[in-house]
Design a binder for these strands. Structure first.
Lengths: 156, 156
DNA sequence: CCCCAATTGACACTTTCTATCAACGACGTA
DNA sequence: TACGTCGTTGATAGAAAGTGTCAATTGGGG
């Protein structure tokens, strides 16, 4: 652990320390702006946009400026600490978590549930046969109402 | 068929006339800019971006201006004549064709193949059970190399 | 052929994201 | 703990993508 991180790990949520250490392992410096963005990201339970991170940080007087937020988000994505989520209209939201994953997103409140087994292996094989394509990536996202929002909707 | 459309249907591809008539049926006027955009759209075999439409139109001296292109594309989407396609990085591309559909997109040349049976009904049911969400929409897109590009890649 | 509402096109504007570059500061080293 | 280096920052300008405005135009019903 770096000096900088060690000096303030007592004031940070464990999740932030964790992510910061992964950055160190990947060869990046841990800096105040990066910690701020990590704090903002871990504070959001579901999916968040860069704009939402910025608002959260501004509200706390810790915003390092939009450029650094974008940079940090990109850095986290590149290092697979953050996943980009594709929405129906809104295109770029993000969620913490590594590796191959898909999401069910609540179109009302933004709540997000990950699922890993997207079960499209068969579909991919079939399509490769029928189209001749070599399929190398896929996008599977689900949208709907979370239990809470569905209940509210029904009550209204 | 409207006077305007009838007057120039001889100079238009049948596909364009077809789409134009669907606009008429939906209660919209058929105008020069809209025909121009339809021509540009039908001229692209696979998925296209608004920017590509604009370039195509500019090259022929028929561009009605970017605002009208955007407006027409939105109109076509709203009327289900055009489908918005979500890419991995590039977010907004479009392809002609109505209704529920998914796509296999060549990441090299943009070639696009639609498929309708995405086979995720089971997955959706399972997720609704396990997450409690009411799933109302889904996004399934495949990316890879088309046969042609795969061959070129292999040869290189 | 005429009138009118739908549509256009130019432009200013917003939003989202990136490039630039001088100044700063985190970390390895001692 | 102090130093020097180089990765990082922040401010700003700008690109890219898309929208709003409004006077001028135009397609189509009558």
């Amino acid at each position: 652990m770096s000096r900088f991180l060690k000096a303030r790990q007592d004031t940070l949520p464990p999740a932030v320390t964790d992510l910061a250490e992964q950055l160190v392992e990947a060869g990046y410096k841990v800096t105040q702006p990066r910690l701020a963005v990590l704090k903002a990201a871990t504070a959001h339970k579901g999916a968040f946009s860069v704009h939402e991170l910025e608002q959260w940080l501004i509200a706390r007087g810790e915003s390092p400026g939009i450029a650094s937020i974008f940079r940090t988000v990109r850095l986290l994505c590149d290092n697979n600490l953050l996943q980009r989520i594709h929405g129906l209209d809104e295109c770029h939201r993000y969620s913490l978590g590594a590796g191959h994953g898909h999401h069910v997103v609540c179109t009302n409140c933004g709540l997000l549930v990950r699922f890993d087994n997207c079960g499209v292996q068969e579909l991919i094989k079939g399509l490769e046969r029928s189209t001749g394509f070599q399929i190398t990536a896929h996008l599977v996202e689900m949208f709907g109402l979370c239990p809470r929002c569905a209940q509210m909707q029904a009550a209204a």
